[in-house]
Design a protein around this nucleic acid. Structure first.
Length: 895
RNA sequence: GCCGGGGUGGCGAAAUUGGUAGACGCAUCAGACUCAAAAUCUGACGGGGGCGACCCCAUGCCGGUUCGAGUCCGGCCCUCGGUACCA
């Protein structure tokens, strides 16, 4: 056996063994319990980054663990191959997106293989392959037939120089990333899919997804955003038209003092035709991008339309404003405004004080039921009068001894709370909850409104004005109609030139002009379309006659899905939706695609930079920086290795090209081997937290594998000759102690495997190796070493599969560690004669006592009270209470 | 802005879920081996005080519940992810 640990040959041999034995090819077998383990497939960006390595090592560790538990495991891999970066590369380097993408796939596949992941490569798929995307085209035509796909206008970012639609990512500080021109909003016709038809089911089913992190379920609940409210119609003064609005607070209806509509609302458009000032405001609202973060952080602005709305109950006329914070895409694109009880409305009326928007309070806290202001002693007029003097209208009325002295300038969140209505005509005296129903009933009986459930979730706009995507299988007929394409797949032409202006497909008559004189749709699908169902296609990867076949019913749902937390809402919600669409087509049986979900954290690293005279930053890779530390290891400065000049610390950030703080997995594997890289990424952080890169830590992981190797190889002869622990009459004290440590660590590791806390699994293995190193060369010591090593190798096998595969065979434990039985804890190894109790006095640790393991409560108390330090702290005080936690702790409450 | 995380030694973290704060590892320091270096091995290692047995402080900040709080509750600060055309 070789003396030094050299991963290169070992890893190549192990991988060759798995290939030759087709170890990871999954075969459907109804008699065996299946386990479908899936990691989110990568976008083929060029090279693997550490985020991929981490994601796939977590997934592979779980897959191998489940396999060692005896399950029939499927773990496939593929490529999310359509997307924007391929078009960018095409523009930059003049390579067709397909060529760039396919060569990236080839390179990254070799990188994945070098890491030894247990994938069934026979099932590999790439979403840019027509044999893949034809089935989502087929499903889309079904959705069209069912009315679940429809045309609607939607807002996009428009670059007026490049004459092209921009992704939100391509809008930087309100400007196009290439042209630098201020971005505008533009409305275009798009395909949408009715995800809102499934909103209630998508929401309800979250309760049953016990295997998902609670935070992800909460995010999806909030994203779907179910609300119960009232739809109602205001009149338009001097017109037969109505202005429909949705509100979740109909109880504040009597406090409405103005209305706000989106700049794109038909009312605003028509006002703009009449009034140049309104037109200028609407034009101003077109500036800027469409992202919610941008819209919501924007300065809230509005402009009067010169139109009045008519209050549905009082008939009072209230002015209508166009406002940049009302979103056309949510509800009806119009809102009623109640500045007394809504923070945003309050801010707006304060900002436009010059328009004299009244603040009309109609709700007081319920605890005020008996106060004068509510009883009417302090009249509405009195409140109104105080408004004019600039004092706060409700809670801070000057001279009212029961009010708190809040000022007009301040907002108090209590104003937004439900309460009891006053100043509300027929509804005065009702609670908010009662008023909700009463007002809805009143509106309904007068034909002016009704209760309605509304979702924040919007239908899914799937059209993209891009080239490198799946063609939308639709034809525009000669009579101006639309029909689904029947001849599938609609193939994307791959020999194209991409130059960054418009879509190349639009300039390809051979693609867009059909012999029939009809025009083919040139938009492509959102790439989330492909990634919403790939997990299912792996099951039926080679089915040429249908989207899915019977095999999908065997494997689905995915038992464990692993991927980044950044996908918590969009991808994971679209995939759940798509699954239900496929279910309703009869393609799958189950209701949800992913039974358990693990969301892994990001890989982050230090950043270092220098600033030039114009403030531009140059970023240096941490590997090229020499850090100076003080006596305690605290960073005191840093210089660039190449020139010795200082560099500035830029914080810990996600590994990225722009900050030049990435670590190349390939060079690490070349230096330390795949097992070290895998072990390091599993050991350094728990899977769901961010992982901070540290080169010295990699060295430490390597050192551990060397220690394991040295122990196994150095003692291989006595290990192979050693007897079983069970056959020995008894163990000497030190061997028994080591065995107790091994089985204690094993117990911990088994628990941690189940909850996927893999970093402490590695810790437990390190603890074992440390204990095994301390063993003597007695028969007992040899037996414990043999047993301990066999346990440790099996526990490590899912994480560091190559070296454990090798040592397992070399030590004669068996041919293939993958087929070994999973270790079990021997509880008798954990037994002790005595138990150590911590003794606290008033909650502070004051001593420790050792008592026989079978001591009763009284004996433990007596031992605690006998301890010298404990007695000193109790002193003259009387012990009033004694808390005993069996096997752990005694707390004496004295005073 | 809104939604969801995170904050514990010089650093990554652990704490079997309310019961000894810092397991395991990295870095650092000291020692052994060595002509020397590397590798390896041994030891020390949260802060402060004490000759010492020991004592005080300490889990982002402020407050609360409890015999007992890193863990539960309320408020705040910082930071990261998402925010519907990045994937």
């Amino acid at each position: 056996m070789q003396q030094d640990y050299d991963p290169r040959g070992i890893e190549a041999a192990a991988q060759a063994y798995w290939d030759a034995n087709r170890s990871f090819n999954a075969v459907e077998d109804p008699r065996r319990e299946k386990f479908y383990c899936l990691s989110m497939f990568p976008y083929p960006s060029g090279r693997l980054h550490m985020g991929h390595v981490r994601n796939y090592t977590i997934g592979d560790t779980i897959a191998r663990y489940q396999r060692m538990l005896g399950k029939n495991v499927l773990q496939p891999m593929g490529w999310d191959a359509f997307g924007l970066p391929a078009e960018n590369a095409a523009i930059k380097h003049g390579i067709p997106p397909s060529q760039w993408t396919r060569s990236n796939i080839e390179y990254m596949k070799a990188q994945l293989r070098s890491l030894g992941f247990a994938y069934d490569w026979d099932r590999e798929l790439a979403t840019c392959d027509p044999d893949y995307y034809r089935w989502e085209q087929w499903l889309f035509t079904r959705l069209m037939e069912k009315g679940l796909a429809y045309r609607a206008t939607a807002m996009v970012n428009w670059d007026p120089i490049d004459q092209t639609v921009l992704a939100n990512e391509q809008v930087i500080d309100g400007r196009g990333w290439r042209s630098g021109a201020p971005v505008e909003k533009r409305e275009i016709e798009q395909w949408s899919v009715r995800i809102t038809d499934y909103a209630q089911e998508l929401l309800d089913a979250l309760d049953g997804l016990d295997g998902w992190p609670e935070q992800v379920r909460t995010m999806q609940r909030n994203w779907i955003g179910r609300s119960e409210g009232v739809y109602m119609e205001f009149g338009i003064s001097g017109s037969d038209e109505v202005l429909g609005i949705y509100t979740t607070r109909p109880d504040t209806l009597m406090g409405v003092t103005y209305m706000a509509v989106a700049a794109e609302h038909p009312l605003a458009r028509r006002a703009a035709d009449r009034d140049p000032q309104v037109a200028a405001f609407v034009e101003e609202c077109r500036q800027g991008g469409t992202s919610e973060a941008e819209l919501e952080t924007m300065e809230k602005k509005g402009h009067p339309l010169g139109i009045d709305a008519v209050h549905p109950v009082t008939g009072e006329r209230v002015p209508v404003y166009a406002a940049n914070f009302v979103l056309m895409g949510y509800g009806t694109g119009a809102v009623m405004a109640v500045p007394a009880h809504d923070h945003r409305d309050f801010d707006f009326s304060k900002r436009y004080k010059r328009y004299g928007i009244p603040i009309r309070p109609v709700i007081v806290p319920e605890t005020w039921r008996n106060r004068d202001i509510y009883k009417g002693t302090m009249t509405d007029t009195a409140v109104g009068a105080r408004q004019l003097t600039g004092e706060h209208p409700v809670l801070g009325v000057t001279g009212c001894p029961e009010c708190e002295p809040l000022q007009w300038e301040l907002w108090d969140e209590r104003f937004e709370q439900p309460g009891i209505l006053f100043n509300s005509g027929p509804f005065t005296g009702l609670t908010s909850a009662e008023a909700f129903d009463a007002i809805a009933t009143w509106l309904e009986s007068h034909g002016k409104g009704r209760k309605r459930v509304n979702f924040r979730l919007r239908d899914w706009g799937v059209s993209r004005q891009r080239y490198w995507g799946c063609p939308i299988p639709v034809v525009h007929t000669r009579d101006g109609g639309i029909r689904p394409e029947t001849d599938l797949p609609v193939r994307l032409p791959e020999d194209v030139v991409v130059d960054g202006s418009g879509s190349p497909l639009k300039r390809m008559p051979t693609f867009s002009n059909l012999p029939s004189g009809e025009i083919r749709e040139t938009d492509t699908f959102d790439t989330f379309f492909e990634s919403s169902w790939y997990y299912a296609r792996y099951c039926s990867h080679d089915c040429a006659t249908a989207m899915l076949d019977e095999r999908a019913r065997y494997w689905l749902p995915v038992d464990q899905y692993v991927g980044g937390i950044e996908h918590a809402v969009l991808h994971l919600l679209y995939a759940r939706f798509f699954h239900k669409l496929m279910r309703d087509e009869g393609l799958v049986d189950c209701d949800e695609p992913f039974a358990r979900l693990l969301t892994q954290g990001m890989v982050v690293a230090e950043t270092w930079y220098r600033e030039d005279t114009e403030g531009r930053k140059e970023w240096f890779n941490p590997a090229d920086v020499e850090v100076a530390r003080d006596d305690k290891g605290k960073i005191v400065g840093a210089v660039l290795k190449s020139d010795g000049q200082p560099v500035v610390f830029g914080g810990i950030e996600k590994m990225s090209k722009s900050k030049n703080n990435g670590v190349d997995p390939e060079s690490l594997i070349g230096r330390y081997g795949a097992d070290t890289v895998r072990l390091y990424t599993m050991f350094t952080s728990p899977p769901d937290q961010s992982l901070e890169w540290n080169d010295d830590g990699v060295e430490g992981a390597f050192r551990f594998l060397k220690r394991l190797w040295a122990l196994a190889v150095g003692k291989s002869e006595s290990i192979m000759a050693a007897g079983s622990v069970a056959n020995l009459p008894s163990l000497d004290v030190s061997s028994a102690a080591a065995r107790r440590e091994v089985h204690g660590a094993l117990k911990k590791a088994l628990y941690d495997y189940e909850r996927h806390q893999l970093n402490t699994v590695v810790s437990a293995c390190m603890t074992m190796v440390n204990a095994l190193y301390r063993l003597d060369d007695t028969p007992g010591g040899q037996a414990v070493l043999r047993e301990g090593l066999s346990i440790c190798l099996r526990l490590l096998a899912p994480i560091a599969p190559h070296v454990t595969h090798h040592l397992w065979r070399e030590l004669g434990f068996g041919d293939d560690i993958l087929g070994s039985t999973w270790p079990k804890v021997d509880e008798t190894a954990l037994l002790r004669d005595t138990v150590a109790y911590v003794v606290q006095v008033n909650g502070k640790v004051r001593g420790k006592v050792e008592v026989p393991a079978d001591a009763d409560r009284a004996a433990v108390e007596a031992a605690a009270l006998a301890d010298e330090t404990v007695r000193r702290f109790v002193g003259e005080a009387t012990v009033r209470k004694v808390v005993v936690v069996p096997g752990k702790l005694v707390n004496l409450v004295a005073g």
